[in-house]
Amino acid sequence: MTSDRRVLVHASTEELAASVAARFITKTVDILDDLGSATIVLTGGRVGTAVLAAVNASPARDSIDWSRVSFWWGDERWLPRDDDERNEKQARDALLDHIAVPPENVHPFPATNDGIELDAAASRYEAELAAHGDESGMPRFDITFLGVGPDGHIASLFPHRSGISIDDCAVIPVRNSPKPPPERLSLTRPALNASERIWLVLAGADKASALGLALAGASRDEVPVAGIKGRKRTVFFVDAEAAAEVPEGLIAPSY
């Protein structure tokens, strides 16, 4: 199955968040109509959280039947459950605590106060994925949100680290992360690339170089986002500053 790559440029971060939120609501309604359920993978960070807050603020928010939507995460910081730096906490505050999603449909990574160690936490999340998956051992991910770091990292897969090349499991423990906190949990590249649609949302001039290199064919080991591609579609939603080094021919006039 081929995958289109598109870059959609927005004038500001605020316009970017509102646009992605509107597209997410429309696409999720379509997925529910077509398939009966939808499975979403969330990210953290400033822009990812802004998108979820924009979904929550949208008058169309409850056009989605949230009882048929499940949520997972692409990565997580190894911190206590209620730590404000956890992607889960940010997502709950921005959206999940405000919608009628059943608790059993929300699948956060384990936390440090769950009474297990980091390696066991990775194994537990992989087992949870498999319990909700098909013969591939993975659930059907309909939309996966990812942020992109200035170094080109995605989830907690960093440049020049072994994580980006691991292909024999779905979840890995991450230690000595170049970005704090040092310990994390992350889906692997094959797990992310099993997604039907990957939506990468990024803003700011500090992201321009990584985005330009990824679209120019850089190595996934040098720029991990270069190795990310959804099965059906890969869309980069960016603001004007982040798009500074994107070749004009790759910028889509519309989605």
Rank of each mutant, 00 (worst) to 15 (best):
Gly133Met: 05
Gly133Asp: 07
Gly133Phe: 07
Gly133Glu: 06
Glu135Leu: 13
Ser136Ala: 14
Ser136Leu: 02
Gly137Gln: 02
Gly137Arg: 00
Gly137Leu: 00
Gly137Asn: 05
Arg140Cys: 02
Arg140Thr: 09
Arg140Ser: 03
Arg140Leu: 04
Phe141Val: 00
Asp142Gly: 10
Thr144Gly: 01
Thr144His: 00
Phe145Asn: 09
Phe145Val: 12
Val148Lys: 05
Val148Cys: 11
Gly149Met: 11
Gly149Asn: 12
Gly149Arg: 06
Pro150Gln: 10
Pro150His: 06
Pro150Leu: 09
Pro150Phe: 04
Pro150Glu: 14
Asp151Lys: 10
Asp151His: 11
Asp151Thr: 04
Asp151Trp: 14
Asp151Asn: 14
Gly152Pro: 12
His153Phe: 11
Ile154Val: 15
Ile154Cys: 13
Ile154Pro: 04
Ala155Leu: 03
Ala155His: 04
Ala155Gly: 10
Ser156Val: 12
Leu157Thr: 03
Phe158Ile: 05
Phe158Met: 07
Pro159Arg: 01
Pro159Ser: 08
His160Cys: 14
His160Leu: 14
Arg161Glu: 14
Arg161Asn: 12
Arg161Cys: 13
Ser162Met: 10
Ser162Phe: 05
Gly163Glu: 00
Ile164Trp: 03
Ile164Met: 13
Ser165Leu: 15
Ile166Trp: 03
Asp167Lys: 01
Asp168Pro: 01
Cys169Val: 08
Ala170Met: 06
Ala170Ile: 00
Val171Asn: 00
Ile172Tyr: 05
Ile172Phe: 06
Ile172Cys: 10
Pro173Trp: 04
Val174His: 14
Val174Asn: 09
Arg175Phe: 03
Asn176Val: 07
Asn176Met: 15
Ser177Ala: 15
Ser177Trp: 05
Lys179His: 12
Lys179Arg: 10
Pro180Lys: 12
Pro181Gln: 08
Glu183Ile: 01
Arg184Gly: 04
Ser186Asp: 07
Leu187Lys: 00
Thr188Asn: 03
Arg189Asn: 05
Ala191Thr: 05
Leu192Ile: 05
Asn193Met: 05
Asn193Thr: 03
Asn193Ile: 01
Ala194Gly: 11
Ser195Ala: 15
Glu196Phe: 06
Glu196Cys: 07
Ile198Asp: 02
Trp199Cys: 10
Trp199Ile: 10
Trp199Gln: 06
Trp199Met: 08
Leu200Gln: 06
Leu200Asn: 00
Val201Asp: 09
Leu202Thr: 12
Leu202Phe: 04
Leu202Val: 10
Leu202Gly: 14
Ala203Gln: 06
Ala203Tyr: 03
Gly204Leu: 09
Gly204Arg: 15
Gly204Cys: 14
Ala205Lys: 15
Asp206Gln: 09
Asp206Pro: 12
Lys207Glu: 07
Lys207Met: 11
Ala208Leu: 09
Ala208Met: 13
Ser209Pro: 00
Ala210Glu: 02
Ala210Lys: 14
Ala210Gln: 12
Leu211Gln: 11
Leu211Phe: 05
Leu211Ser: 13
Leu211Ile: 15
Gly212Phe: 11
Leu213Lys: 15
Ala214Asn: 09
Leu215Ile: 13
Leu215Met: 12
Gly217Gln: 08
Gly217His: 06
Gly217Pro: 08
Gly217Phe: 11
Ala218Pro: 03
Ser219His: 04
Ser219Gln: 09
Ser219Val: 07
Ser219Leu: 11
